[in-house]
Design a protein around this nucleic acid. Structure first.
Length: 573
RNA sequence: GUGCCUGUAGCUCAGAUGGAUAGAGCGUUAGACUCCGGAUCUAAAGGCCGUCGGUUCGAAUCCGACCAGGCAUACCA
């Protein structure tokens, strides 16, 4: 089974399921229930505490086959359940739900487990021994990273964290599109700005990159390489701008990302893929296997043989390969590096390329499941309520750096990154996102991340107070957890128990926003508890110790969850 | 035209495998602790879950057809 031994909730569900199956068998034997086979039935947390700790709709599912009323089936099942230490009380409710009220032992086991596991609480070994790679923020290096990349960076980094938490060995990689026509356009744009700064009356190329950053970069290069630039021919200079300019843009992207707490293990380069001969190898392989044909001066790949709705050009009529070919070569290289699973995060504008990518992978002999391509949905740029078409060419965009800088002015650098990352990770990756810089800054202080962080800081504060009063933290042997029986205390413990499942679901579905959601829930449950139950009470040291134990488990879980999202857990705010 | 994403409270969004009275934040209204941090808590108001069919004991969830918004759409990357 995939439940780790530290997933108490999963264990308790499995145990309850076995008890129910045992009861069904017994009912079948004595003839009180007539069914052939047992369907896969849910054992889940009901949405109201008064419906118990766990619940099943099994009786409803069996009604048809057993030809009995669901409530009657429920009664039959309950009659066949032997006394056991797990269950305190069972009720039949509504149309035939069986609601289980459990004794609190499992909640106490849970707290001890959290306390033991500390920063490992929530992790599992579902994917133990497997290697995964996450490729994200694969942007053109001809401009600074924008807010679209900021979203991708947040999401990709967290997906990598989540995969690691379920046992994968994970590598983060970014692919630089430092080859192809755009790179020449970039160089020509720099050259034009260079000459303009030098006083030449040259026109800026219409298809060039109009953003102000090109002008700044040209000036920077003039400052650093003035004399050398003069001596070069125009052709030499273009080559220089291409090399040096790209290097600086790429370095800028790396700096922006590391400021955003996103660090890649590998930066792969399209140019080196092209230079390596792997591209020719791929073309040759496709030709040799009869996957290509010539038509109208171009070489076409028969992607319709696989999963595409039309064939795709692989070599243009001018002799250059289309951009997909180095991408195939690049992914073939990934497979040779021994990854069991490769996940690519793409923007929605590349959606149409998924099929031809996968078709190529299949032609190259890779299984369709090996490469998983996720679309991180679009970010619509808004300015003063009006949609702005983002365009690198036109210089119309908001950069990652701008976002972090402006948030830093408002809330400081540490919180700026927290606010931005949470902002992007609150929503599912499939939802379209309207981004308004002014609004984002204005609402920075209202960001829900502070609600979560406040819960953590509050707990830290309790422990500071305790220390001042000379109350020690204690281990599980000296504490009577059974003292905690109020609704708020039990709800808080139950919420803590959901963390491992949340990580697993979130990781397997590649949806980090569920962690964000969970943390808001947990913080909310904690704040309610805090307002109802006083932790430090000099007149009741046993209760104080029990609640301190609980609260430290909340602290651990909050911190682990925030860390998955790349967000800090401040001890004070 | 075709493919994909989206449509849930005034706004921004959650609702895995179908389950009980569809949730949260913001906003609105009314309240709370002379005591652990008020960046908190409690409560109220607010809904044809885009529309119409289908499957099911049961549908926001699955299927089909529509409607609306967005993105992509054969040799840019």
């Amino acid at each position: 089974m995939w439940q780790g031994h530290n997933n108490i909730l999963a264990n308790i569900k499995a145990e309850l399921r076995n008890i129910i199956i045992g009861a069904i068998d017994k009912a079948k034997e004595d003839g009180s229930l007539k069914i052939e086979n047992l369907p896969d039935f849910p054992v889940q947390k009901p949405d109201q505490p008064e419906y118990g700790d766990l619940s099943t709709s099994l009786a409803l599912m069996l009604a048809k086959e057993a030809k009995m009323a669901p409530r009657k089936i429920a009664g039959t099942i309950i009659d066949c359940i032997d006394d056991n230490k797990l269950i305190q009380k069972i009720e039949i409710a509504g149309p035939g739900f069986i609601n289980f009220f459990l004794t609190d032992d499992w909640l106490h086991d849970l707290l001890k487990t959290i306390h033991d596991k500390k920063e490992k609480y929530g992790e599992s070994d579902v994917a133990k021994g497997q290697k995964a790679q996450v490729e994200f923020v694969s942007a053109n290096p001809v401009g600074p990273l924008n807010v679209v990349s900021a979203r991708a960076a947040s999401v990709g980094d967290s997906i990598a964290n989540l995969l690691k938490a379920i046992g994968y060995e994970v590598e983060r990689e970014s692919y630089i599109n430092d080859a192809g026509g755009q790179v020449n356009t970039f160089a020509r744009s720099l050259e034009a700005r260079y000459r303009q700064i030098m006083g030449d009356d040259v026109e800026f190329p219409e298809d060039g990159y109009h953003g102000a950053y090109i002008k700044e970069l040209a000036q920077e290069l003039i400052d650093d390489f003035d004399c050398e630039l003069h001596q070069k021919s125009e052709e030499e200079r273009l080559g220089f701008f291409r090399e040096e300019g790209l290097q600086r843009m790429i370095q800028g992207q790396k700096d922006d990302l590391s400021n955003f707490r996103v660090v890649f293990d590998v930066w792969a380069s399209e140019k080196s893929v092209r230079d390596s001969g792997k591209v020719n190898h791929v073309i040759q392989y496709l030709k040799d296997n009869g996957y290509t044909y010539s038509w109208e001066g171009a070489v076409w790949f028969k992607s319709t043989l696989f999963c595409d709705d039309r064939d795709r050009p692989a070599i243009k009529s001018n002799g250059d390969v289309t951009y997909i070919v180095p991408d195939w070569a690049y992914h073939l290289d990934k497979s040779q590096r021994g990854f069991d699973k490769v996940i690519d995060l793409w923007g929605p504008d590349h959606h149409g390329y998924i099929n031809r990518m996968q078709a190529g992978m299949q032609a190259l002999g890779l299984s369709p499941e090996w490469l998983e391509i996720l679309i991180v949905q679009q970010v619509n740029l808004l300015s003063k309520g009006q949609a702005v078409r983002m365009s690198k060419r036109a210089g119309q965009f908001v950069t990652l750096k701008q976002l972090v800088d402006e948030l830093t002015e408002k809330v400081g650098h540490e919180f700026a990154v927290d606010v931005a990352r949470f902002f992007f990770q609150m929503r599912s990756t499939s939802s379209h996102l309207d981004f308004d810089m002014d609004l984002a800054i204005q609402q920075a202080e209202a960001n829900p991340v502070f609600y979560i962080q406040y819960a953590h800081a509050r707990i830290c504060s309790i422990f500071r107070q305790a220390e001042e009063q000379g109350i020690d933290r204690c281990n599980s042997n000296d504490v009577n957890l059974g003292l905690m029986s109020t609704l708020e205390e039990r709800e808080l413990m139950k919420k803590l128990s959901e963390f491992p499942d949340t990580i697993q679901d979130s990781a397997l579905d590649r949806e980090p926003h569920r962690i964000a959601r969970y943390l808001q829930d947990l913080a909310s449950t904690f704040h309610s508890f805090y307002n109802k139950c006083r932790v430090l009470d000099a007149d009741n040291m046993d209760m104080t110790k029990a609640r301190m134990f609980l609260v430290s488990c909340v602290q651990i879980t909050l911190k682990n969850g925030l860390s998955l999202l790349g967000i800090s857990a401040p001890t004070s705010m």
